[in-house]
Amino acid sequence: MVDQLTQITDQFEASWNAHEMTVFGQLFHDDATFVNRYATYWRGVDQIVAGHCAIHDSIYRDSSLRVDPADIDPIDDDAAILHFWTRLSAGAAHPAGPHQADTLILAVATRRNGDWRIQAAQNVTLADPRTGRELLRAS
């Protein structure tokens, strides 16, 4: 189970960095949900892919993502919770210019017909709760 779930996070990083959102979409069940770091809610893999295509064709077209190893909590033989940190490096295409952001993703992965995929994911940006200023983790 752990090896298959680790493949999800490895592919998350690889597909982001290749800007291959069709491949990115294959990480999700057809009826999956995704909440991005700005609280945009997408239901279904088509919306998830379309939303990510829009940002990868524009502000994140020159971005890269590093995904840290996931903290995996099995629920049963066919479900697990993953928490994983990412460091986004935005490039010159971003309106704010080159910068980095750390986010924590909570994903629920389930196995259907032998395939592990993400059923639900939510991405939050690390920020100071008193000021809202984005923070970076000590690496």
Rank of each mutant, 00 (worst) to 15 (best):
A54D: 12
P74H: 02
H56N: 14
W85S: 02
D31E: 06
N113W: 09
E20Q: 10
H29V: 05
F84M: 07
G44S: 05
L27A: 03
A109W: 02
Q100L: 03
M1C: 02
N36E: 12
T86M: 11
V124M: 07
R111V: 00
N123D: 13
L82C: 12
A92E: 15
I55T: 15
P69E: 14
A50G: 07
L126W: 12
T103A: 11
I59T: 15
V45N: 03
C53P: 00
I81T: 06
R87D: 08
D57R: 15
T131Y: 08
R117K: 07
V45A: 09
S63C: 10
G44K: 04
G97V: 15
I48D: 10
G97W: 14
H56R: 12
S139V: 03
A70E: 11
A120H: 11
Q119T: 10
T125D: 12
D128L: 04
A14S: 09
M1Q: 14
L135S: 02
V49P: 03
W85D: 10
L104D: 03
G25I: 05
L5F: 01
D128M: 00
A109V: 07
R61M: 13
Q11D: 04
A127K: 13
A109F: 01
Q122M: 13
R37V: 13
Q4W: 04
P95H: 08
L88I: 15
D62M: 14
N123H: 09
R112I: 01
T86D: 06
R87V: 06
I72E: 02
W16Y: 13
A93F: 14
I8R: 01
F24A: 07
D57N: 14
L136I: 10
I55Y: 13
A39G: 09
D3T: 03
M1Y: 00
G51F: 10
T9S: 00
I75S: 02
G97Q: 13
T9D: 08
V23D: 04
R130V: 07
F34Q: 09
F28H: 12
V108G: 00
N17Q: 11
I81R: 13
Y41W: 11
D78R: 08
M1P: 08
Q119C: 05
R130G: 02
Y38K: 14
I81K: 15
R43A: 03
V45D: 04
H19D: 04
F24S: 08
S63Q: 08
T131S: 13
R130P: 00
A93M: 14
